[in-house]
Design a protein around this nucleic acid. Sequence first.
DNA 1: CCATAATCCTGTACGC
DNA 2: TGCGTACAGGATTATG
Length: 299
Amino acid sequence: MPELPEVETVRRGLARHLLGRTVARTVVLREYSVRGQAGGAEELAARLAGRVFTAAVRRGKFCWLVMDDGQLLLAHLGMSGQLLVSGPDDAGVDPTHLRVAITMADGGRLLFVDQRTFGYLRVCEAVPTADGLPGGVGSDLAALPAPAAHIARDLLDEHLDRAALVAAMRRRRTEVKRALLDQSMVSGIGNIYADEGLWRSRTHYAHPTAGLTAARAATVLDAVALVMTEALAAGGTSFDSLYVNVNGASGYFDRSLAVYGRCGQACRRCGTPVRRDAFMNRSSFTCPTCQRRPRGVPG
DNA sequence: CCATAATCCTGTACGC
DNA sequence: TGCGTACAGGATTATG
């Protein structure tokens, strides 16, 4: 599942391979993959035609390409989305789940492949950032895609106001994992990195945010950021093959996960079997020894 | 302000 | 073997 590290890997690949190139034509193979696009697939194609990509930017799990006329090509990968930069004949690309094909003037292609179709592409307007600072990682432009203007900065954004985030978390009357997953509070964190960061900071997912000291809240955020930084370092190794795969495969999943998906297996710190709970209509994995359940939380 | 549920979708895993 | 069901999940929207 693409969370922040995977999307950052994609962004770097796009920045490396796509900037300065011109769009020739766009084919949308599945209308649903451009849902929300004003004017549908036809307008998407029309607004892309002839444009040059000038920057690749990311905030949280949202990634966008800036174009020479100021429009933005926004991508959200959802659960299974991939952006592939390929040569003219797309050799090696499985066409089964190909949703959008953008052919460049030089014959290369930017392909959007998405099995489960939670992801989407959209050409949209840029709106100014509220703080006048750069909109995300990858560009100094103080602009955001209009559909993502409500998304908060992420933990790898140098312009993130950490102290303000800690204060905002502690003001909220909710549980810490809910706050971590709230993309309007801090972006880029999904179920996997939330669980991993909470495990690393020995914090239970249902810990009340109002009961966190500022230091403890900072510790949780530091842990999540560290897990993401490590995942980023482990990913993004496949850029130089003949067919450049900008898919963000992390490599992190199988090797380094401490609790996520490891129900019943030994905690890597203390050996206690990892436990799985239903929380927010998804699974939460914890070590019952390392992550003590707060008072009043059932289970 | 905050929580919950439903919604979108398809491949995989599992029980019978 | 095959069929039905549950599950995986992020963001949005509606509703309480």
